[in-house]
């Protein structure tokens, strides 16, 4: 017994080191799987509070570019509105049928990373505004990522600049589908994989979201084709996409809530139960 006690006392530094090192490795492994990172997240009271305190000050620096972006968005929406007014002969009086099935919640980015391989963004809205896991996040220019952690007042987003991220996207002109990933080289370039060989590709074509999931509605802007190459087995193309968004300079984002998500999920779950 005494021997064992002496052993522990003699090696207490080594044992302490082992325990703490294993704990941190455990936390690291957990953080590499999506949705599992519950403990170490900046969506907590302390770091979230400090980050929003910081962005209260730094937010002033890009007010001008922020305003320009909002004006651009307003103009674009005004034009679209005029277009719809001209083209709709049947004016809908029943307002409930014209409402979109998506809600948009605005939020402010309080911390943004883009230099790592698994980048996360922290925003200042959380479950209080009924923000939940797996909701899509966009700006006026294009997609940003998917919510992967929430607390009462804050939430973190898994950015599209994250090697775990995989988003369904398509060519706007021909509806060929592929999945959007990131190869960590450049924060303004992402890759679209598994585009079939038959697809007619033109440099500069627009890429939009595919709408095959409940996260993003169809047709949210992503970017334009920068270049493309055929895989070695000649089965499919991999495209380099230049993003519309400047991911290094985000300040305001919108969170998309799909009203019919619960229903779709229920139907899909029912299906697997029946099998």
């Amino acid at each position: 017994m005494q021997q064992i006690l002496f052993f522990f006392i003699r090696n207490k530094n080594f044992l302490l080191f082992c325990v703490l090192f294993l704990v941190s490795i455990g936390l690291t492994i957990q953080s590499h799987s999506y949705h599992k990172n519950k403990f170490i997240t900046s969506a907590n009271f302390l770091s979230g509070g400090l980050y929003s305190f910081k962005s209260d000050f730094t937010g002033y620096f890009n007010l001008r570019s922020e305003n320009n972006q909002l004006i651009e968005e307003n103009i674009r929406m005004r034009e679209e509105l005029e277009f719809f007014k001209k083209n709709s002969f049947l004016t809908e009086l029943d307002s409930s049928s014209t409402l979109s099935k998506y809600y948009y919640t605005p939020a402010r980015v309080i911390n943004n990373s883009f230099s790592k391989t698994k980048n996360k963004i922290t925003i200042d809205e959380g479950s209080k505004k009924s923000i939940e896991l797996d909701m899509g996040v966009i700006t006026s220019k294009g997609i940003v990522g998917i919510i992967n952690n929430t607390s009462k007042n804050y939430a973190t987003i898994q950015s599209i600049l994250n090697t775990n991220s995989q988003i369904n996207a398509k060519l706007k002109s021909t509806d060929h589908f592929g999945s959007l990933v990131w190869n960590t080289n450049d924060p303004n370039i992402v890759q679209l994989e598994e585009i079939p060989r038959l697809a007619p590709l033109v440099i500069g074509d627009t890429i939009v979201t595919g709408g095959r999931s409940t996260i993003f509605p169809e047709g949210i802007l992503i970017g334009t084709i920068k270049d493309f190459k055929l895989l070695a087995d000649e089965s499919s193309y991999t495209l380099n996409i230049k993003l519309f968004n400047d991911m290094t300079n985000l300040s305001h984002v919108y969170i998309i809530q799909n009203k019919e998500r619960e229903e779709i999920k229920l139907v899909e779950e029912g299906e697997t139960d029946a099998e």
């Binding site: 080191f17 090192f21 936390l27 690291t28 953080s31 990172n37």
Partner: peptide, 18 residues
């Protein structure tokens, strides 16, 4: 905590401290 990075800084720091 601030960097949303799991335990990578903790692991590296503990190692050099030891």
């Amino acid at each position: 905590f601030f960097g949303d990075s799991g335990g990578i800084h903790a692991a590296a720091s503990v190692f050099i401290a030891y």
